[in-house]
């Protein structure tokens, strides 16, 4: 008899584990506690037990019955709670959307550039977009007849006013307004007389960089550009420096990054060279330092530029600059 009680207890424990729904529970309840259930059968066989052990065994059966009842009732409450809410909403309906705003991808990249240079101790400077001929050219060692002026096709407002062709005039404005040391970047919009196509826009965005002080060398320029490349595009990006010419730097350099698409192996984007031209840089030309009243024998500096649109296009694999300025929501929402 005692074995039978133990067996039913076991059965019950197993059953408890298996019940997942209310109908399951009802079935099991009948199996154990029904009029012809397992407990009832136990009571029926109580007659076969010797008289003297009957009260003890009877008590045990009663205890088991109570235990089963309590457990079933608890389980019923639990199942009731779990199933109660479920049936009232269709959880597959979409949630209530919030309006989501996006930062333009170009400005996302500009923000990143600002953050990287801010972390390296650079300050953000700014200057006007319509500039005087002096700041855009003359002060940068480009007199009126300088052939380098042909390198940039200029939009003129008047004989003396231009839409700045680069962010370099900010160098002059900052140096004129204070004494070294200086460490700035100057992101902003620039203009060229280029007919729009996939790789040209008559307006685009650059960031100038300028560090001036004592003991500022070409080695610092290389260090800063390499560090920027690693932070912007990843540690594996290599930087290449080539001699070049800009009237406002000497020595001048053109710097390239390892092609981000083919990792330098050569592909269509980099024209199989493995390198992507980024921008120009160099040591500030002594004439430029003289123009702002610095002593080029004591003070030295480096300057660099970078195309923000170009970096954005590289970063996001955009192949047509014009899409940046169409403001198609399907475009901006991707970033």
């Amino acid at each position: 008899m005692l074995e039978q009680i133990a067996e039913i207890k076991n059965l019950f424990n197993k059953s408890l584990q298996e019940i997942k729904t209310l109908p399951d529970l009802e079935t099991e309840k009948i199996r154990f506690l029904g009029r012809k259930g397992l407990i009832a059968t136990l009571f029926e066989t109580l007659g076969d037990v010797p008289q003297d052990s009957r009260p003890v065994i009877g008590q045990q059966i009663n205890a088991l019955k109570k235990e089963i009842e309590i457990h079933f009732s608890e389980l019923k409450n639990k199942l009731n709670l779990l199933t109660a809410g479920l049936q009232s909403v269709d959880i597959t309906l979409p949630g209530r959307a919030l309006p989501v705003g996006k930062r333009h991808p170009l400005h996302q990249v500009a923000d990143q550039i600002k953050a990287i240079f801010s972390s390296m101790g650079f300050e953000i400077a700014d200057g006007p977009e319509v500039e005087t001929d002096y700041y855009n050219f003359e002060a940068l060692n480009m007199p009126r007849t300088h052939p380098a002026r042909d390198m940039q096709d200029t939009l003129y407002i008047s004989d003396n006013l231009v839409l700045r062709t680069h962010t370099s005039p900010v160098q002059i404005r900052v140096m004129e307004s204070r004494k070294p040391p200086i460490r700035i970047i100057a992101p902003g919009r620039v203009f060229r007389r280029d007919t729009p196509d996939a790789s040209h826009s008559p307006f685009f965005h650059q960031s100038e960089g300028l560090v001036v002080g004592e003991d500022v060398t070409f080695a610092d320029l290389k260090g800063v550009i390499e560090s920027f490349a690693a932070q912007m595009l990843g540690r594996e990006i290599k930087v290449r420096f080539r001699p070049s010419f800009f009237p406002f730097t000497e020595p001048s350099v053109e710097y390239d990054f390892n092609c981000v698409f083919c990792k330098g192996k050569g592909c269509r984007v980099c024209k199989n060279t493995g390198w992507l031209e980024i921008s120009g840089a160099g040591m500030v030309h002594p004439n430029v330092l003289k123009n702002v009243g610095y002593d080029p024998g004591k003070i030295s500096g480096y300057a660099f530029g970078m195309g923000i649109d170009r970096l954005a296009m590289l970063k996001f694999n955009i192949n047509d600059i014009r899409i940046l300025f169409e403001n198609d929501l399907r475009f901006i929402n991707q970033f």
């Binding site: 040391p181 460490r183 500022v216 070409f218 001048s252």
Partner: peptide
């Protein structure tokens, strides 16, 4: 100018042979 000769020298020795320095001596702006 002397700076022009510096460039000539750097150009012939090769820009990749020039050192890079990661710690600027210029204080933070």
């Amino acid at each position: 100018l002397p700076a022009d000769l510096v460039e000539e020298f750097a150009r012939l020795i090769g820009y990749s042979a020039l050192p890079a320095r990661n710690q600027s001596t210029v204080p933070y702006s």
